[in-house]
Write a protein that binds this DNA or RNA. Structure first.
Ligand SMILES: [Mn+2]
Ligand SMILES: [Mn+2]
Ligand SMILES: [Zn+2]
Ligand SMILES: [Zn+2]
Lengths: 148, 148
DNA sequence: ACAATAAATGAGAATAAGTCTCATTTATTT
DNA sequence: AAATAAATGAGACTTATTCTCATTTATTGT
């Protein structure tokens, strides 16, 4: 049985955000794409359906309720991705050629070691570390449909 | 004895880039600041000395000869830093409050483990990984002069 | 279900980071 | 020192994102 939280209407009501057409459409598009997506690509998918200003507003709404992650790719494209409850902590791999962004889960041992490193840094620099991010850069090989 | 490579004129001539005033001034400012700096802050330091268009051109020149690293902070500010020969591989810590960016060197054991993780990912995803970046987010504590 | 109220939207104007143009200045080469 | 090539400054231009405001849509209370 499919997770109810993945329905746009449920996601919105769970977060006490009013259910509107543009919000449903944007969520649907993000859920359907299923991967990190550039604003540019998202805009092209929504052309004629959601106004540009509304798209940015909806994305901000989703950020505010902490279900949208935003970051910048090495070629300075803004990328967003939904954070679903079922998603586990992960990182990203960027293709320098086609710009594709791929989710990557690293091993628990590695994540534990990273936490230890952060604890060391915290003490040394007297800084309270809340979060981290690991980004990997490289090149898609043969099976990428975008680069060739 | 101070490293000759740290003199703007030497840096430029070593990279076969012509020695001009704006380039010297920008390099001096970056060297003097000694830390990653936002474009905004850099511009304010250069106000009246180097034209905006020239600043961007010089930064591009430095990127081309691979002595400038550029990245985006979590609040979407563009940050640059000089890559000096004496610098070792390192990562960054961002204060979510004041925006400060701090260099962080992680342990060799950690870096080795990260390389191993990347090798695993490479095989699994058939992706050629060239580089990586670890970013840590948090809050400066007491001794930060910017946040208070 | 219906009116009243509050919130969200669309269209396009405004803002601002970064790029481009071109006349002038500066560096390099001869 | 003159000739040539490269770099600069000023401001125009481009474009991603934000803002404004009149209209539409959602929510609430009856
Ligand atoms: Mn992801
Ligand atoms: Mn650094
Ligand atoms: Zn690719
Ligand atoms: Zn701080």
């Amino acid at each position: 049985m499919k997770n109810m939280t993945q329905e746009p209407r449920n996601i919105l009501s769970q977060h006490k955000v009013s259910i509107t057409n543009p919000r449903i459409i944007v969520l649907d598009t993000l859920l359907d794409f299923g991967n990190p997506i550039t604003i540019e690509e998202l805009q092209s998918k929504l052309k004629g359906k959601v106004a540009k200003s509304t798209l940015y507003r909806v994305l901000n709404d989703l950020k505010k309720i902490n279900i949208l992650n935003e970051f910048t790719s090495p070629d300075n494209a803004v990328v967003v991705e939904l954070i679903l409850e079922e998603d586990s902590h992960h990182h990203h791999l960027f293709c320098s050629d086609c710009g594709e962004v791929i989710d990557v889960e690293l091993s628990d041992e590695f994540e534990m070691m990273l936490v230890k490193e952060m604890e060391k840094v915290q003490k040394e620099l007297n800084f309270e570390i809340k979060d981290h991010r690991v980004e990997m850069f490289g090149l898609c090989t043969d099976e990428c449909s975008n680069c060739e």
